[in-house]
Design a protein around this nucleic acid. Structure first.
Length: 474
RNA sequence: GGCGCCGUACCCAAGAGGUAAGGGAGAGGUCUGCAAAACCUUUAUGCAUCGGUUCGAAUCCGAUCGGCGCCUCCA
């Protein structure tokens, strides 16, 4: 199976070839745990999860590493901003460590609700300070650094090809930059590897280092940890679309300056979820969390399905209407699967006949840079194709779901076990129906609905299901 | 100012030279005591606008209009 991926490095579609046959090393930039993740953040993790599952589908053994940034980053790069962790801690009246632990838990809770597979390795920045110090030492030894004002800087002029990922060489910095240039920097794009001088509030997280007590710059953790767990060269590095210009550009410079070798082969970046006219961002105050969606009656998987509806490299507009459409779509798939399951008895282990053609289409589209919208279309077309035996449709759908991961293997006709009262009401209603007292029957149906139970009459008797969330949300 | 991206039906959204996927919503129908569910049918001679290249363009080129992102922490 040939997997094509769009590589940000070089801006072209490439056939994926791992460094080591059958194995993939993949590093994904994780969350900074100073606040809840919003659904925009989560979109990127869903994209990475789809990537991981597609790689597994293609037969690769995937080693997936993700960092958790639990050491402060500035709120901006002007060296005047506040430390995000500190800010979060102060506002919540807790220690930075408590804040980090709390939001890390919250993050992985959401992660799981979205059926994102836990990374092979989850690494916390604060647990790898020594690795960062060692890496900075190597960079220093290779002559890529200078010290100014107590901080260790990376000198980009020493690194040929700096900014290749983001095509920075084709850009001009606007004259009279909008941020005050750090006087210590030789070049505006130089960046700090190790801080000992903090211009802002008291820094409660500091460590000893060869350059003095301080804390690491905000790019070094990804270089240090990814190489620790995946080796000095590995296959895939991904993250949000905001990363190429600064974060990933600097990671590349540091890493390759340290090892003298090309670092990562494929760079993949997920586009923004946009809210209204702007990207969703904590600073813009327009962010929505997964919990908010759940409170409004959505299943986390409705959001997963919603994300699957658009390609990961295009901006996706978040609207409640769109999310409702996704819910209806997902429910449709789930119902269809339950129906097929009821019709097919024991499904064969793998699809046969015409279902194979659908599988082939699905694979072509999945391997074409993770074209999930197209894959979803393949799923739907197959599900509705009466020429394909139910057992084959079911088997194929479940196979496809190893990538979608909408929990289809668990989808069944929701069997409601009626309690005594419900049972009594149902009996009364059937009696009324037999006596053709439909007015009373409809009244009882309304009573049951009020109890959250929907009654559907069928030739085989009344069927019960849990009433779907009917709330109108906006 | 520089760089990058986008504009497809009521909504979301694929397609990237060969004649518009899919979902949602709406409409009609079958079934039903009625509903619901299910199933069937239906909804863009056209893909921002105007030119150009081509046998052929939503897809390539140019211009125009509109929108977004990055150049500053950010998924």
């Amino acid at each position: 199976m040939e997997l094509k991926l769009w590589n940000t490095m070089g801006r072209e579609m490439q056939i994926f070839t791992p460094r080591e046959k059958g194995k993939v090393g993949m590093y994904c930039c994780g969350p900074t745990v100073y606040d809840f993740a919003h659904v925009g953040n989560l979109r990127t993790y869903i994209f990475e999860d789809i990537l991981r599952k597609t790689l597994a589908y293609a037969g690769y053994d995937v080693r997936h590493v993700m960092n958790v940034t639990d050491v402060g980053h500035l709120t901006d790069d002007a060296d005047e901003g506040e430390d995000k962790m500190l800010k979060g801690a102060r506002e919540k009246g807790k220690s930075v460590w408590e804040i980090a632990e709390f939001y890390t838990k919250a993050f992985f809770h959401d992660f799981g609700l979205l059926r994102c597979v836990t990374p092979t390795v989850i690494c916390r920045a604060t647990a790898h300070i020594q690795d960062m110090i060692d890496l900075i030492s190597r960079i220093e030894k290779n002559g890529f650094t200078y010290v100014a004002g107590g901080n260790v800087y990376f000198d980009i002029s020493k690194f040929p090809g700096y900014g290749k990922l983001a095509l920075l060489d084709q850009q001009e910095l606007k004259a009279g930059a909008r941020i005050a240039v750090d006087e210590g920097k030789k070049n505006p794009r130089d960046f700090v590897l190790w801080f000992t001088k903090s211009k802002f509030e008291h820094q409660s997280m500091t460590w000893d280092s060869p350059w003095g007590r301080g804390y690491p710059g905000w790019h070094i953790e990804c270089s240090a940890m990814s190489m620790k767990y995946l080796g000095e060269q590995f296959d895939i590095h991904c993250g949000g679309i905001d990363h190429p210009p600064v974060h990933h550009t600097n990671e590349i410079a540091q890493s390759e300056a340290a090892t003298g070798k090309p670092w990562v082969t494929y760079w993949l970046h997920g586009e923004w979820l946009v809210m209204g006219k702007e990207k969703m961002a904590k600073s813009a105050g327009n962010f929505t969390t997964l919990s908010t969606l759940v409170e409004k009656g959505f299943d986390p998987l409705d959001y997963r399905y919603f994300c699957l509806g658009a390609h990961y490299r295009t901006q996706l507009a978040f609207t409640w209407e769109g999310l409702s459409a996704a819910r209806a779509g997902r429910m449709g798939v789930v119902d269809k699967i339950a129906q097929l399951r009821a019709q097919s008895g024991h499904p064969p282990a793998s699809p046969t006949g015409k279902a194979l053609q659908y599988m082939a289409d699905f694979e072509t589209h999945a391997m074409d840079d993770l074209n999930m919208p197209r894959c979803l279309a393949d799923l739907w077309t197959m599900l509705r194709d009466a020429e394909v035996p139910p057992a084959d449709r079911l088997a194929a759908a479940l196979r496809m779901d190893t990538i979608f991961d909408l929990g289809l293997s668990e989808a069944r006709e929701a069997e409601v076990v009626p309690d005594e009262e419900t049972r009594a009401l149902l009996e009364q209603r059937e009696l009324a129906r037999k006596g053709r007292d439909f007015k009373k029957a409809d009244e009882i149906r309304a009573m049951l609905l009020a109890r959250g139970i929907e009654v559907q009459d069928s030739p085989g008797g009344p069927k019960l299901r849990i009433a779907a969330g009917q709330r109108r949300e906006d």
